[in-house]
Design a protein around this nucleic acid. Structure first.
Lengths: 234, 234
DNA sequence: GCCGGTGTTTGCGCCAGCGCAAACACCCCT
DNA sequence: AGGGGTGTTTGCGCTGGCGCAAACACCGGC
C-alpha cells in the first residue's frame, strides 16, 4: 500500500496532526479502487467502515420509503464520508456511488474509538466535517423553503462549481459527469425544469451544456440569478 | 444550584455515565431561566456556551441573508442544544427562542474539550445528537423534494406530537404554543395554506385547532394523509 | 367593558413549475 | 455502419399552492 504521504498530509482531515500520528492512522487504513457507477456502501446497510476519498468524486444518494431519490451531496477529494460511526449510527444513512473512478481509504469502524481517543485532532476533524454538513443541509432546507426553483438551481451550480470546478478556456466546468436528473434531485425539482432553465441560461451566455456536462461561462451572472429573490421580501 | 440529580440522571445526554462522573459534569454547569419568547442565543453570535434543556421547549430558527426565516427544529426537555463547539464552530448557526418559560443548564465552551476527553460517553452522546439531527435534516430535505405540502404538514405534525405531545381527553395536543406561521416555517409553505389544511382536517375530525394550539384527535387518519403520496410513484 | 394587537380564517385570481409526451442527440457496442 | 440505450430538449395543458386582501376571533391591558 504505497501511499503518497506528502499529498495526504495536506488533507484537511489530517490537519493538526504530527507526521508520525498521521502514519499511525494511515497504517490502519486500507486503500481500494471503485469503478465509475459502482456502489461503495448502501443505505440501511450495516456500517462496517468509514472512508476518505483520495481521488474521484462520490455521489451520496438518499432514498425514501416510497422510492424517491435525492442527491444529498457530492464528496470531493480529501473528504471523509460514510462516518456513521462518528455519529453513533450502526447503519449508513445513504448510499454512496462512485461518480467517476475513485480511490478511497477505509478504516474498520472498530478502529474509530481508538483513533479518536489517541488522536483527538483526527476526531475533531471528523466532527467538524459532520457539523459543516449539518449546517449545509440546514441551509439547503432554508433555500428550498424560501427560494424559487431558478435560484435553487443557480445556487446548486455555484456550489458544485466552487467545490469541484475545473477551469477551462470556456469557463469553469464541473469535472465529473452530472445529469440534469442529478441536478433535479439536488434541488427538489424535475429534470425537465432543469433542462429548460439551463437552455435559457445557455441562450443568455451564462452556461454551456453538454451530455452529463455543465460549464459555467459567466459565474457573475449566475450569482445575480441566484440572488435575485422574488418571493416575500422582508 | 440545587439540581435534582435523580431526574437529570435519566436524561439521554448522560446515559452511560457513572453517578460521580455526572456530578463532575454537572458541577461545571450553570442553571438559568428564560422567560417565554426570550432569546437564548442568536445566529452568527459568538458561541460562548453549550446548553441542555431541563424544562420547557425551545424553537430554533434560522434566518437567511434575505431575511427569510425557517424553524429548524424544536428542542425538547433533556436535549442538548447550541453545541456549536462540538462541531468545531465558533458561532451559533441559528437563533434559539424559549417557546415557553424554560430552565436550561449551560456550560462554558472552554469546558467542552476537557469534559469530552475525560468523559467520552458524554462526548459520544453529544455527537450522537448531532448525527441524529443531520439525519433528520436530510430527511426533511427529502420530504420537501418529493412530497406535497399536505403530506409535509401531516408529517411535521406527527413528528411534533410524537416528541412533544400531551395526552388529553380530546386527543394528543402539542404542549407548547405554536402558530400556523411556525408550522408554515417548518414545512416551507405559508400560514394561509397551513390554516386551510388544518381547517379541512378539522372538518374531517382529524385535528382540532385553537389559537396557537393544535390537537391531533385522530393520529391514524393523519398518518394516512402523510403516507398518501400522489407524486411520481415509482 | 372596551380597545388594540396578534393570530386565524377564507375568498379569489393567477402563475410557476409539474406531468405527460414526443422528438432528438449522442455514445458505445457489435 | 448500424442500432439501441441513455440522456436531453421542448411543447402543451393543467393545477397546487401562493399572493393579496379582507374579515374575523381571541386575549390581555387599561
Amino acid at each position: 500500500m504505497p501511499l503518497d504521504r506528502s499529498l495526504i498530509s495536506s488533507l484537511p482531515a489530517f490537519s493538526g496532526l504530527a507526521g508520525e500520528d498521521m502514519d499511525a492512522i494511515l497504517s490502519r487504513a486500507r486503500s481500494s479502487r471503485f469503478a465509475k457507477d459502482s456502489e461503495i456502501f448502501a443505505q440501511e446497510e450495516e456500517a462496517k467502515s468509514f472512508f476518505l476519498l483520495l481521488s474521484g468524486h462520490i455521489r451520496v444518494v438518499r432514498t425514501s420509503a416510497e422510492g424517491h431519490q435525492v442527491v444529498a451531496r457530492y464528496i470531493n477529494e480529501g473528504e471523509l464520508f460514510g462516518i456513521a460511526v462518528a455519529m453513533g449510527k450502526t447503519t449508513y444513512p445513504a448510499t454512496a456511488f462512485a461518480a467517476v473512478d475513485c480511490v478511497v481509504l477505509s478504516w474498520p469502524n472498530s478502529a474509530w474509538a481508538d483513533l479518536q481517543a489517541r488522536f483527538p485532532a483526527f476526531g475533531a476533524n471528523a466532527y467538524r466535517t459532520i457539523g459543516a454538513r449539518l449546517q449545509e443541509t440546514q441551509t439547503q432546507v432554508m433555500e428550498m423553503s424560501t427560494q424559487q426553483v431558478e435560484q435553487r438551481i443557480a445556487h446548486a451550480l455555484l456550489r458544485i462549481v466552487s467545490q469541484s470546478g475545473r477551469k477551462t478556456s470556456e469557463g469553469i466546468e464541473i469535472d465529473f459527469p452530472i445529469t440534469r436528473q442529478d441536478i433535479a434531485e439536488m434541488t427538489g425539482t424535475t429534470l425537465h425544469t432543469v433542462s429548460r432553465l439551463l437552455s435559457a441560461w445557455e441562450d443568455q451566455g451564462i452556461v454551456r451544456g453538454g451530455r452529463q456536462k455543465v460549464t459555467v461561462t459567466d459565474p457573475h451572472a449566475l450569482m445575480l440569478v441566484a440572488e435575485n429573490r422574488r418571493k416575500k421580501p422582508v
